[in-house]
Structures are given as structure tokens and as C-alpha cells.
Design a protein around this nucleic acid. Structure first.
Lengths: 222, 222
DNA sequence: TGTACATCAGTGAACGCGCGTTCACTGATGTAC
DNA sequence: TGTACATCAGTGAACGCGCGTTCACTGATGTAC
């Protein structure tokens, strides 16, 4: 018998493996047919099992989708955290580069988070928490920028509307920078992933780099 | 009998009216259940007709969806063109304001264009043309800005990758500005429409305004 | 070490459902003389 | 103006399909003594 090094039994390990395999097929299916076409029966067939068998592993279709969304968020949080705080001080450029690499590696994963929301779906709290963690990573990177960003009318608004920063000590101008970084990088990435640059003839990577440069640029002397 | 003022017969008018009514119900359905759940049978039921009746008006489900996408693009093109060139010189601020109003008026319409692409769907050429027209409007507005934007590394790239501008005479720096306007406004709008700002506590309109300000700001003195 | 029992993975049949789409048909509306 | 015919909107039945999900079951795997 196997040594009981930790608390996982063989059965638990087997379960985890099958669940992982189900999710892999789920991603494949989302990639080729879209998230709304995700079907437990189809996944079972691909795995050479009968449809009802999957109900041993997921309570229903919704639970599988929630799990995929959670994994997507977690993966994104890991990728950005590692890159931003990789060596020494948090670095927005490294974060941005890692984000793009992560997004391009699996467009469906990015779009499951940031694409058209599934109507009626509401993410559970733990997913919201991961999302906030990602925001924290962006905030840290912006707070560590060599130049403190300039104050703006909007940063005045943020001074009194900063609950989302969850107590982060950064000044309002940095909060503004973080939100801007988020929306600008997402702006380029989402259009690229959705194929809206296709056929236009320029290199999306260069447009993305230009946005990163703009974010990292020193503020104009006041 | 009605005077034949133009070439539309009563039957043609009736057809056009029913087609429009079908589309209205289709938008309702997209709003509540998502584009992928769009069902001809369900629409027919809502209209008090039998399912097959709709096949008099649309060849199949795909044709209806294509029509909706076309209408969405056309509506966006109209809204931006009117706003940008409304009174006198093209105006990026007016364009941006109109775009946001248009997007918030019907999030599903915006998301049908810019949300997660429908897998395997490829837009026909006339829709691509409308999309290019919108880009032209943005280009015009950027070309009319009081300050010519500064040259950038990316504008160097655009100097030799400007086919998408379709012969527009603007210099590369303006092309860069137009692409940037597009991606930044989309960045804020798409996150807002998808609900990612919900619960964060700040006012998305102010973030949007800050991006518009940044786009319209004079370049830093070189 | 072997035996008895409990746990759990997976199956196949079945449920009701709604979908897109076709087809032959009825009945109303418009057109031509 | 009335009559004869063509056009076309809409119906109801039918097709095959795949979906999510339940249920009672078989057979393998692990556990306790």
C-alpha cells in the first residue's frame, strides 16, 4: 500500500485527476464552441464515459462553469503576482508583459473573465476576493513607480471613493493610475483577443507596448 | 387604395414591420438570456405566432443574428458620426460622450459587437465596411484636435502599417491617437458594461471623463 | 492472511424539454381583366 | 364593378437532435477484523 505521506487517499487523488481532466475538455469545448455551448454530456462522450458519470464529480453544469471561472481568476492572479513581484520591487512593465502573455496563451480563459457576462450568473464571494487580489497587485506596482503620478480631477473623486482599494495606503493619484492601467491594458487586450485588429495590418504588440510606455511615463512638469 | 408615393407596396411595408418586430423581441431575448440563447421558436411564441412562421422573414437563425450585428454596427456608426461632426469641426470629446451614451442605452448591443465573439462566426464584408467607417470618424476627430499629438515609437510603426486607415491623410501620430482613443474608451466602457466596476464604489463616468481628458490633453513639451 | 462489509465509480434506461428546420396545407390579400 | 387567378402569410404535424438530470443497478476498490 502507498505511504500516507499526506492526507490524500488514492481515491481522492483519482477524483482530483478526473476533475482536472473534465476541466481540460471543458476548456477545449469552450474554445471551439463558446462557453454557452458547454455540455456535460459532450464532455463525457469525449472522455469515453457516459453522461451521468460526471455527476460524481460536479453537482451540475453551473458548478463546473463556476470552477472554470475560479481557475481562470486564480491563474491570472498567480501570473500577475509572480511577474510583478518577481525580482525585487513590484514592476508595472513586468506585470503588463506577463498579463499579455497570459491572455494570449488562452484567449478563452481571458474572455471567460472579461468577455460578455453570462446572463444571470453571479460570481461567489471567493472569486470576488481573487479579483480584489489582482487589483492589489496592480496597485502595488503603480505605487512602486519611480515617478508619483500627478493629481487629477478624478483622483479627487477617488480620495472619497476608495473602498475598492481595501485599505491600500497609496495616494489617490496612484489609485487613478491603477484603474487606468487596468482599463487601458484591457482595452488593447480585449480588442486583440476578440479579433478586432485582425486584417488591420499593424502589430498589436506594439500598440500594447505604447500603452505600457504611456502608463510608465513621467508626468508632465506642472 | 393607398397612393404609390414610393416603390413600397403594402405587403412590403408589412414585411418590414414584422421583421422589425422580430428583431425587437430578439434584442429583448439577448438582454435576458444572452446572444447564444437566441431562439426563433421562442421569439415566435412571444409574438403569438408559430415557430415556422418566422422562416417567411429570415432564412434561418444565423441570418437573424447577422442582421442584429449589422444593425448594431450601423447604429453605432450613426451615433458617432452625428455627434462627432454635429456642429462644425469634428470633435473627439463629443464623439466620446455620444459613444458612452449609445453604449449605456443598450449594453447588449455594444457587447454583441465587442463582447466575446461567437465562435465560428465571420462577419460579411458590408459589416466590415461599417466598422471601417466608424474608424474613419474617430480618425477625423483626432485629426481635428487642436494639438497635433507627438510622434512615438509606435507611430513610426504605423507609418508603414496604415492600410487600415484607407488612405486617410492624417500623419502617423494621429493614427496612433485614433487607435489609442478606440482602445482606451473601449477599455472603460467594456469593463463598465460587463459589470466589473459594480461594487467598487467609484463613478465610472468620472473615470471615463478622465480618459477623455487624457486623450484631449496637449502633448508634453518636448 | 483471508474473509465480510462498506464505499464509491460508472452504466444504461428513462424523463421532459426546447431547439432548428421541412413540408403540405389553409385562408386571406392583392392583381388582372 | 365583379370575377378568376396568383401570391403570400401563417398553421400544425413531424423529423431528428442533444441537452440536463434522476434513478436503480452492477462491479470494482478500499477498510476492518
Amino acid at each position: 500500500m502507498a505511504a500516507k505521506t499526506d492526507s490524500t487517499t488514492p481515491r481522492e487523488r483519482y477524483r482530483a485527476q478526473v476533475r482536472a481532466e473534465v476541466k481540460e475538455h471543458a476548456w477545449d469545448q469552450i474554445g471551439t464552441a463558446g462557453a454557452s455551448a458547454l455540455s456535460l454530456n459532450a464532455i463525457a462522450k469525449q472522455m469515453g464515459m457516459s453522461g451521468p458519470a460526471l455527476y460524481r464529480y460536479f453537482a451540475n453544469r453551473d458548478e463546473l462553469i463556476t470552477e472554470l471561472i475560479r481557475d481562470a481568476y486564480q491563474s491570472m492572479a498567480d501570473a500577475t503576482r509572480t511577474a510583478a513581484a518577481g525580482d525585487g520591487a513590484p514592476d508595472l512593465r513586468a506585470l503588463a508583459a506577463a498579463l499579455r502573455t497570459w491572455a494570449l496563451a488562452d484567449p478563452q480563459r481571458y474572455l471567460l473573465i472579461y468577455g460578455t457576462p453570462i446572463p444571470g450568473y453571479h460570481a461567489p464571494d471567493d472569486i470576488t476576493a481573487i479579483s480584489a487580489e489582482i487589483m492589489g497587485t496592480v496597485l502595488n506596482a503603480c505605487a512602486a513607480m519611480p515617478y508619483g503620478p500627478a493629481e487629477t480631477p478624478f483622483s479627487g473623486h477617488l480620495a472619497t471613493h476608495r473602498d475598492w482599494a481595501r485599505g491600500h495606503p497609496a495616494p489617490p493619484a496612484v489609485l487613478h493610475r491603477a484603474l487606468t492601467a487596468w482599463t487601458r491594458l484591457h482595452g488593447v487586450l480585449s480588442l486583440e483577443l476578440a479579433g478586432h485588429f485582425r486584417g488591420m495590418g499593424f502589430d498589436p504588440a506594439e500598440l500594447y507596448a505604447a500603452e505600457v510606455d504611456a502608463l510608465a511615463a513621467p508626468p508632465p512638469p506642472a
